[in-house]
Every structure is written in C-alpha cells, then in structure tokens.
C-alpha cells in the first residue's frame, strides 16, 4: 500500500483549466483536498463540476494547469491513480445485459483483483446495497433506485482511498439516501477521502467538511458549510407571503428592516440577524402578510445568492 506523506494534499489543482473547443468549462481553478477530508463541489448545471470531476478521476486531460492526485501526475500515472479511486458517475453506467453479480465480478477484474477476493467483496457489497436476492437477475430488470445502489456498490469494489461521487443520491428514495449517507460516514471514519457533487444542499451540509461553489467555470466561494453561511448570508431568514393580488409588496417599508432582501413572485425574503424581531417590526410598520416564517439561513440561501435564481440550461 503506497503511503503518501500526510502533509501533502491528496488532490492539488493549480490553475486547472478545461476547454471544449471555444468553450471554457473550467477556468483556471485552484483547490486542495487533504487526506480523510470530505470535499464538496456545488454549482448549477454547466458550472464545470462534472468536467472537474472527470479531470480529478484521471479520465479527462486538463487543457492547462497542474493537477496532482496522490502526489502523482494523472497524465503519466493514470492507471496507478485510477486503481486507488472509486467513481460514482452522474448517470448509472451498468452493463444492462449482465447479471447484478456479473457486473461486480467483471468490474473487479478491471482492477486486477483475484476472482476469489472479488467474490468476497461482491457478496458483502450486495448485502450493503440490499441486492443479495437480485444477484442473478439481469441489470436491465432492476428499478432505478436499485441500479443506483449497484453503481455505488461497484465503486467500492477496489476499496478506494478516494471516492468521487457525482450527484450520488439523485433518483434515490429517502431510505436509500440515508443508507448511503451512513455508509459514507463509515467510509470517512475509515479514512477514505470523499469528493461529492450534489444539488441537494442538505446533503452537502450533512456530508461535506469543506466545499466550493462553482459558477461558469470559476470557484466563487470556498469554506466549511457554516463558514459559508456566515460569510454570505445572515443568521436567519424571514419569509413573508402576500396575497396573490397584491402586485407590489411594500418594499420601501420592508427594505430598511433587513440586511438584504429578495422579492419573489409569491414571497419576500428578508435576510436578518433575528427573524422574530424583524417580524415584530414589520407588524409595527402596519404591513400584514398572509403568513410569515422565520428560519435559519441554509446553504441553499448561499447557493442561490452566489449563483442566482435564473434557471441554467
């Protein structure tokens, strides 16, 4: 087992760039991921997350910049790097014509593992993915959630030191989602490094020690989830809902009450330190919304603030 000095980051990117023709998908980003860390990439569709993931998986070659994984250069040591990686791609890429078990057996072979060892691990992973009974079914006959679980199980066959998960829980039901989280915590406590992209902010808050927010190929924010919230949002959010026929909420009255506010088609969001205080002030000013909700700021607020509310693609 090759050990890299723990002072070195596991993944280190400097000016990492990826172009597709004239389009720049990743625009010279820098980041470092330490061993044992759980690191998140957030960002809307087209922000460059998947391109970054494919470079970190030692599949796509960067257009420019330096990238080292396990202290190795992916251009020359791709196979050696990939041998120590696990990848859960965004879309399931199973062999639909093969059985569930054969999918795992074959995948293990690609890692040069002996058949006996693959069988042992496959049995254990099928148990984890709750697919033991379906081991001899063709993959084609599995439900969407089952396929996702099998893809995740497959990524663990080579007992990776670094696990890369591109939107791992998309398409999973809440039960399966929590099951996967549990497994990821366990892997993390075993010292496995995790890289995760996700659209679910609660997932990012739950799983990531540190994360970056990407937009248009750039990193626009970096830090621990709580840090990001305190940097880019207020402590609480007051959501006021107005009757649909009120065309313009009384903004001139509300705006002095908040650090920042946002007018949505059905609501007004006031970003404040203390929501209850502000709500009292709103009432005192003679404004009567249909309903009011006070909540803590979440990562979602940070995300929407940094990347905007407009739909991408």
């Amino acid at each position: 087992m090759p050990q890299v000095t723990s002072s070195l980051p596991l993944v280190r990117a400097r000016g990492l760039t990826k172009d597709f023709g004239d389009f720049r998908a990743v625009n010279g980003i820098d980041f470092e991921i330490s061993r044992g860390e759980s690191f998140g990439f957030l960002g809307p569709n087209g922000a460059g997350k998947t391109s970054t993931m494919r470079m970190v998986s030692a599949v796509a070659t960067p257009t420019a910049g330096d990238l080292s994984i396990f202290g190795l250069d992916p251009h020359h040591d791709g196979p050696a790097i990939r041998a120590r990686l696990g990848v859960v791609p965004q879309e399931d890429t199973l062999e639909l014509e093969l059985t569930v078990l054969d999918n795992l057996l074959m995948f293990g072979r690609y890692f040069d593992l002996p058949r006996k060892l693959i069988k042992e691990r496959a049995t254990e992973l099928l148990e984890f993915a709750k697919l033991t009974e379906r081991a001899h079914d063709k993959c084609d006959n599995l439900s969407g959630g089952m396929k996702r679980r099998l893809t995740i199980a497959r990524s663990l066959l080579n007992q990776p030191e670094l696990l890369i998960l591109d939107e791992p829980t998309t398409g999973l039901d809440p039960q399966a989602r929590h099951l996967l989280w549990e497994r990821l915590y366990r892997l993390k406590s075993d010292g496995v490094t995790l890289i995760i992209t996700t659209h679910y902010m609660d997932e990012a808050e739950q799983l990531c020690d540190r994360l970056v927010v990407m937009d248009h190929g750039d990193i626009v924010a970096e830090g621990a989830p709580r840090e990001l919230i305190s940097q880019h949002s207020t402590r609480e959010v007051l959501e006021l809902r107005f009757p649909v026929d009120v065309t313009t909420p009384p903004i001139d009255v509300l705006s002095p009450l908040a650090d920042r506010f946002e007018v949505l088609p059905d609501r007004v969001l006031l970003y404040v330190h203390d929501g209850d205080d502000t709500l009292r002030a709103v009432h005192a000013a003679g404004v009567t919304p249909v309903s009011a909700l006070v909540r803590r700021s979440t990562l979602e607020d940070v995300f929407l603030r940094l990347t905007g509310r407009t739909l991408v693609d």
């Binding site: 998986s57 599949v59 791709g78 196979p79 041998a83 696990g86 890429t93 690609y110 497959r154």
Partner: peptide, 14 residues
C-alpha cells in the same frame, strides 16, 4: 448507445 466503456475508464484501463 449502451456506453459500456464509460465505467471502464474509471478503472486502471486506458
């Protein structure tokens, strides 16, 4: 169509 090769690229195979 079946994109069989994509997962293979996540392994030591080139």
């Amino acid at each position: 169509v079946s994109r069989v090769y994509e997962p293979v690229l996540a392994t030591p195979l080139d």
